[in-house]
Write a protein that binds this DNA or RNA. Structure first.
Lengths: 224, 224
DNA sequence: GAATGTGAAGGTTTTCACAGCA
DNA sequence: TGCTGTGAAAACCTTCACATTC
């Protein structure tokens, strides 16, 4: 076992490190296509606009994947990183709210590519229930809890109006789903052990707005 | 002038602080609707799952907005925060790529609410060019640079495939637009002074995946 | 009494710098 | 020689604690 993931002495890994691992993974996929056999922390850092030390530190939390003098084996490191992120498998995902954003997510190719398979859709609109989106029949949101359980859903994407998001999430929690990606601009309450990530596009525009009015030079081009 | 935004001695404000200001703004809008006259750092902190000290520190970077013993005046603070974020005005936004995500963004109400007005659409697909989306005629991407300039666009949302994103962005930069919200999963190159924010939904699902396989207890429920 | 504003303390993340290995 | 892996230092961010003000 080369990833020290045994439950003893596991260091808390920062959110930034995890996000950078996602980026390394993407870049490693690219490097693989470009037929690189190995890659140095310097090269990875250059592509991600980071320091080589940062890249090495991030990876070192999970093991020693490189060879001194040579760098990291691309294919192998990619496999390791995907294992760390838990994307060396298929995740069964449901989506609630087949509106603007919901529909876009159903057709979003990057999800499938990375093993996130949207296999269930829910809505409360009678006109949508029963209709077919990309081969999936939209279910009635009334049956959310039971269908999530019956279909062994592991993650739910919430793309409903802010006013109803909390009720939906309460149901999702009852179905014992432990991971939620939330698009509603609201602070959801969930019991501990349930993971919520918020996707808020307005916040990013607001960041840009702030940067502009403050002539704020972005540190290395801003959030990557 | 109560915001120390004169060019002398401006402290670097962290990205986290700005994001929290966005959240305060949202919560202040809510508090205003609930007819709160004032709010304490304690109450704001509770709603955002932060510490009161954090709230006070964040605000203190920009001035002294509160009254000891009382708290912050809701309406006034909201106005101040919107001023700081630069959202006390209308921003003219263009969107490139009227596909899945692009279409969703055009109809996304939160943008308009916060003063981000999408006033131009571009695509390279002949079937889309000339068509009407929410009252906006889709322009040919060939004319991107000139039309961005003629229409005094200040921000561009890029929702095109990763393979073409860089070319589009090069054009956007030529049009002297200084703010880009990028949905393509790629590290864009822009000259310094141009602000880029990346919106990557897959990264958030990957974070959830990591959290799940690592039985990783989220610190206060994860990214809010 | 209640709650802000803020130096100082404490904690976390990033960078440095170099020993160690191919 | 080239590049990793990693303690130590530096930078950064958050929390504490209290003087200050209403």
């Amino acid at each position: 076992m080369d990833i020290p993931s045994g439950d003893t002495a596991r260091k808390r890994i920062s959110e930034s490190t995890i996000h950078r691992l996602s980026r390394y993974f993407r870049t490693l996929s690219l490097l693989e296509k470009e037929n690189f056999e190995t890659v140095s922390s310097k090269e990875l850092a250059k592509r991600e606009k980071l320091t080589p030390a940062q890249v090495r530190k991030d990876l070192s939390f999970f093991g020693s994947f490189g060879t001194r003098g040579l760098g990291y084996p691309v294919a192998e490191l990619k496999a390791k990183v995907s294992r760390i992120l838990g994307i060396d498998r298929i995740w069964r995902v449901a989506l609630v709210g087949v509106g603007n954003i919901g529909s876009a997510m159903v057709s979003y190719k990057e999800f499938i590519k990375q093993g996130f398979h949207i296999v269930k859709l829910f809505d409360n609109d009678q006109r949508k229930i029963g209709s077919n989106h990309k081969g999936i029949i939209v279910s009635d949101i009334k049956n959310l809890r039971t269908e999530l359980q019956d279909d062994r859903i592991e993650m739910v994407i919430v793309a409903v109006p802010a006013t109803v998001a909390q009720y939906i999430v309460d149901d999702i929690v009852k179905a014992e789903v432990k991971a939620i990606l939330n698009f509603a601009p609201i602070n959801l309450k969930v019991p501990s052990g349930v993971h919520v990530r918020n996707e808020n596009m307005v916040m990013e525009l607001e960041y840009l707005s702030f940067a502009m009015v403050n002539h704020h030079s972005p540190k290395g081009g801003g959030k990557a």
